[in-house]
Every structure is written in C-alpha cells, then in structure tokens.
Amino acid sequence: MRRADRLFQIVQYLRGGRLVTAAMLAERLEVSERTIYRDIADLQSTGVPIDGEAGIGYIMRSGFDLPPLMFNREEIVALVTGARMVRAWGGTSMSAAAEEALVKIETVLPDKERSQVGGTRIFAPEMGLPRATRNLIDRCETAAEDRHILTFSYIDKGEIKTDRRVQPLGLWFWGKVWTLVAWCELRNDFRMFRIDRMEDVTDSGQVFTHVPERSLAECLRQLEEKYGPQ
C-alpha cells in the first residue's frame, strides 16, 4: 500500500468518532506501530485535528472532512473501467456497490468531466457468473474482512474432495477465475482455493487472530521470493 493511501485510510478509521489505538491501526494496515506513530504525527502537522498520544489512542475532532476530490481524464477512465469490471465479474454486493459508486462519482464531477463517465470506451462484458458464485464471493470477502474462520469441502483438479478449515486472507481474480487466499489449517500453510470448487461453505463465526507469519503480507512475500514481484 502506498503511503498516501495509508494516510487516507488512517483518516477514514479515525472519522468514526471513537478512540483508536496505534496497535489497532497497525494491525489493520499491516505495518508497525512505529509507522503509525510517524503517520499520525505527519497528519497532525498538516492540520488534521487528531487528538491523543502514543500508548493511549487517537480520536479525530468532529467537523473535519477531506476536501472534494477532482479527477483527470485518465483517472476517470480507470475508475469507470474498474467499476464496470466489478459490476460484470464481482460478487452480488460488489456489483451493486460498483453501480452505486459510478452514480456517486458522476454526481460530484463538473459537467465536462461528467460526460467522460458515460463516454469511457472500455467495457467489461458479463461473464455469466451464477448467482450462487457471486454470493459466495461476497461471503468470502466478508469473512476475510471480519477474520472469520471458514469451513468447506474442496474438490481439487484431480476431483479429490477434502474438508478444509481455513483463515481467509483475501480474494484474487485471475480474469476468469476467483480464488480465495487463505491459511489452511489442514495443510498448515498458505493455499489458494478456486471459488467454483468450494462446496458447503460455512462461516464458523470464530474469529482468528492476526499472526504475522500467517498474514496476507507474508503470503505475498513468499510468492515474490519464489516467483518474483507479483
């Protein structure tokens, strides 16, 4: 994650009006607490009204909001294209959210830029994903966000079925196939599971603890070490 994106996310987390500790932010953003302390100090120095101190927590004074964002043509094309892709190939909730995002983006743009939204010439034809698959994508995304352990039966490419209990870390899209990236408790290692080969998926409701050695960041590190930058 770029530093600018991380600073933006910190502001969003603090806008809830509740005390947030550096440890909570560090865990959520997968950086060290020292990095969070430095980011908070930099935000405060630019006038963002953040109160608090290290070891106690931080809170943002009410009334603060980010200035409106403006987009150039290339940024509009990227946003519209991304939203169209999600609408065509994402989960049920993702697709609806992408449609709503396009509406919101269009309403805040000046007239000249607004015309570029509908005029973007990049399209994403529907893949015809079954509704059950779209719903499963949403369920896996929610489980990864909430850190809920998932159980399911998995059918591998050799048509061998095994029961799995995993700690979901994220979703990857490969153009035609969605995979769930997770820490598999059966294999005691990182694994990727094709969404369309998962059956009887159940959210256990059990929350797993963030462990650096089993995190998405560590999974990416191992992949880069094996295959090069992803």
Rank of each mutant, 00 (worst) to 15 (best):
E75Y: 02
S153V: 01
I50E: 04
G90D: 07
P130R: 08
Y58A: 06
D39W: 03
V211T: 05
L223Y: 02
I76C: 07
T120E: 14
V31S: 10
L69K: 05
L19K: 15
F208Y: 11
G128V: 08
A124V: 12
M85D: 10
T133W: 15
I137G: 09
D65Q: 10
K161L: 02
I195E: 07
R3F: 04
Q206P: 05
P130L: 09
G47F: 02
A22M: 07
T202D: 11
A88S: 09
I50Q: 03
A26H: 06
G205I: 03
I50V: 11
I105D: 02
E213T: 01
K226P: 01
E113H: 07
D156F: 04
A83C: 14
S115C: 08
R121P: 00
V77A: 15
F71A: 12
H210W: 05
E99L: 09
I36T: 12
L136N: 06
Q9S: 12
A101D: 08
F64Q: 11
A182N: 11
L25I: 14
T46G: 06
M85Q: 09
V80N: 04
E113F: 10
G175W: 00
T162V: 04
D156H: 02
E224M: 11
G228L: 02
T21H: 05
E199K: 01
G57F: 11
T46N: 05
G158I: 07
G118L: 10
L171P: 05
I137Y: 14
H148G: 13
L43Q: 04
Y154L: 01
D200P: 02
